[in-house]
Design a binder for these strands. Sequence first.
DNA 1: TGCAAATCGTCTGCTGTCAAACGGTCTGCC
DNA 2: GGCAGACCGTTTGACAGCAGACGATTTGCA
Lengths: 154, 154
Amino acid sequence: MATKTADRVRPTYFPQLAAERLDIALCRASAAVARAADAHAGAEGLGVGQHLVLQMLDAVGPCSQQTLSEELRIDRSVMVSVCDDLEREGLVRRERNPHDRRSYAVTITDPGRRRLAQAQASIPAFLEDTFQPLTSDERDQLSTLLGKLLGIGA
Amino acid sequence: MATKTADRVRPTYFPQLAAERLDIALCRASAAVARAADAHAGAEGLGVGQHLVLQMLDAVGPCSQQTLSEELRIDRSVMVSVCDDLEREGLVRRERNPHDRRSYAVTITDPGRRRLAQAQASIPAFLEDTFQPLTSDERDQLSTLLGKLLGIGA
DNA sequence: TGCAAATCGTCTGCTGTCAAACGGTCTGCC
DNA sequence: GGCAGACCGTTTGACAGCAGACGATTTGCA
């Protein structure tokens, strides 16, 4: 039986902490969501970073790793292995930019587009599941607030 | 000059991504806040985890590391080094619980209380600074939404 | 032209986090 | 009493994230 200790009077200090420390509440919620996202991505067979790169390449066309890093907020050194994995699976091509041969022109391939479509299809259900405690209006509120915090409206 | 590349037409894909993927927006915002919190805590000379442990001990009295871990959402194995550091600086005492010698009774000391008071004093300014893009009402909104997401209202 | 500085992708090392396994201890049942 | 199973704290190993340094390349300026 695990009820032995569970029966004890729960201190439940966490709600108080979350109310006082907005930063902690944000980080703990993020950790839970990130864990769910990793699990979902793992089950889908395509990492979160890989998915985001494919999505951006499909939306805005060929990019340097630098641009991908900046826009997706993924560190340059992390982007290396993300692109390595994608290239190994034939989902993107890495070609030197002829005008600036320091940089690559990372391009999504047709298999990459198919894989992206497949991964995209499962996202709405994942979001619905992860943010189930919130109504649709509340999710919009949260999105707006996070946008301000990220300096997007500015 | 760094304006060379900055002058180029900014793709600014990130806002679109943040709007579509609430999970990504949450994680990126959390990462920024966590970085600010670490920097603040580092400057204060007391890690975020250490601060939280002192705060909880002061609020609810002596606790086992297990209870601290669960309520503060810090992994057990991480809690070890957190308490190690606190004990080494004399801010807490670790005594075996006489009724259950598997667990500790982690207790805050008087120096610990003084250090806590000092650290607490700098928190409001830190929060004000970090969440400056949001009004007071918006911070309350965010707190409520995160609370629901964390399953507190349940 | 030639050279210093900046940029891009890569690699290395450090830190923080987590899962799993391990002793020491307690509980439940015989 | 004695033993199987659960629990607490700790250690270990693996892995992501990030800072810093490096070679290759381009740019700016003399």
